[in-house]
């Protein structure tokens, strides 16, 4: 977790269950619309999502929950 400019944090979340580019686009558009999400980049190859968000509106847990609500697994194990 790396916070820049006070409230803006960058975080990479592991995401299991993606098989093609349409999953990537769906996650990027769905999570991207969430309030407080400044930027999101999902990598099918690395099976993760890098998110820049406002820590006043989102947290590691709420991001993981949003991904889980979509039916993907944000395995927080590591």
């Amino acid at each position: 977790l790396m916070c820049i400019l006070g409230d803006l944090c960058s975080l990479t979340v592991p995401v299991e269950g993606m098989t093609c580019d349409s999953c990537v686009q769906t996650i990027e558009s769905q999570i991207g619309r969430e309030p407080g999400i400044i930027h999101i980049k999902v990598s099918l190859e690395h099976k993760n999502a890098t998110v820049i968000y406002d820590q006043g509106l989102h947290s590691l847990q709420s991001l993981a929950d949003a991904i889980e609500d979509m039916g993907f697994e944000a395995d927080m194990a590591n």
């Binding site: 269950g17 993606m18 098989t19 093609c20 349409s22 999953c23 769906t26 609500d69 979509m70 039916g71 993907f72 697994e73």
Partner: peptide, 14 residues
């Protein structure tokens, strides 16, 4: 749904 990943996601939600 366009692929296995999508149907897998729907299955997990349900």
């Amino acid at each position: 749904m366009t692929c296995e990943g999508c149907s897998g996601a729907v299955a997990r939600v349900l």
